[in-house]
């Protein structure tokens, strides 16, 4: 019972977070200097009267809270409005962009977590200077080298100097770059956590029982380290969003990131709002799942 209440509470908090983010985005979009009509006006040479008429028809001259309430009302029924620039339903545009980003994010996430786990487990099982150095290297790489720099360097080295890959297209390079970045963010705390988990008293008990190293590792060390692994994978998501954004721009992938960025430059509010809402809801959902998994693994958390 308390478990259900706790899960509901964390879900509620997540929804509150998402709602606040959407609200913040809405008002930030509207206070930004120059609106969509200005942008279109510059491009199409509209007169002041035409602009005013256009604002009125788009409902942009109404009070902000009213506009927001309107938008929320529609969004809740699944209608995110139409793109002002492209005059297409926003939902359709997001639907086209989402798979690209989802694929990139999912692949990089798996690569990153797998690489980090592999390095951390290896370093715990067989401590060596080389593995420690490798962990340090990956960690420092992710701190010091922005993903887009790595992407540019990859383009420079592989496609221009070596002529191996076409500059544009293919998910391979973006996934490698973002995955390595993700791995670097978590590999160090992961390694420290595993090293501590090996020294836990209950692991010593398992050894005193004479259990085999495999059994000790999987039944006793890994569960103890799992909460931290989960928390870290949640942490990676932030890097994942930033990484996908730059990679999509650099490699001209038609994903959520490019869509949002273009919309920001064109002041295409419905798209910005819908995209940020989507990202926020996804992040909140993942955080909630991580939280629930944590509760599932650790019986002590009520």
């Amino acid at each position: 019972m308390t478990r259900i209440v706790a899960v509901l509470a964390s879900l509620l908090r997540g929804l509150l977070q998402a709602a606040l983010i959407v609200m913040l985005t809405f008002f930030l979009c509207r206070v930004m200097p120059g609106d969509v009509v200005d942008v279109l006006g510059l491009e199409g040479g509209l007169t002041a009267e035409q602009q005013a008429a256009m604002r009125h028809s788009l409902g942009l001259d109404r009070p902000l809270p009213l506009q927001f309430a309107d938008w929320v009302g529609h969004a809740l029924t699944g209608d995110f409005g139409r793109s002002i620039r492209f005059d297409r339903p926003v939902g359709e545009m997001l639907g086209a962009a989402l798979p690209v980003t989802a694929k990139l994010a999912a692949l990089s996430f798996c690569l990153g977590v797998a690489l980090a786990l592999l390095l951390a487990i290896a370093a715990t099982a067989r401590p060596s200077r080389w593995l420690d150095a490798a962990i340090d290297l990956v960690n420092t790489w992710s701190i010091a080298v922005p993903t887009f720099c790595a992407g540019v360097a990859a383009i420079l080295v592989f496609s221009i100097w070596l002529g191996w890959l076409p500059v544009i297209g293919g998910l391979l390079v973006p996934v490698l770059v973002v995955g390595l970045d993700n791995a670097g963010q978590i590999v160090k705390p992961l390694g420290e956590e595993l090293r501590e988990a090996v020294l836990l008293p209950h692991v010593r008990t398992a050894r005193a029982k004479g259990l085999s190293p495999w059994r000790t590792a999987f039944a006793h060390v890994l569960p103890a380290a799992m909460p931290v692994v989960l928390a870290l994978s949640g942490l990676v998501l932030g890097g994942l969003v930033a990484g996908s954004l730059t990679m999509e721009v650099l490699f001209a992938l038609p994903g959520l990131g490019s869509l949002t960025l273009n919309a920001i430059h064109g002041r295409d509010y419905p798209i910005i709002l819908a995209a940020v809402t989507l990202i926020a809801v996804a992040l909140v959902a993942i955080n909630t799942i991580v939280d629930m998994l944590h509760r599932l693994i650790d019986p002590r958390v009520s």
Partner: peptide
Amino acid sequence: PLRGRAMSMVFQDPMSCLNPFMVVAGQIDE
């Protein structure tokens, strides 16, 4: 091979020496 057969050990702080993720039956069964 000797541990848990010919000789075994109990420790100071039983709370942290038992695996918190496993029920009592599982730990003895091991």
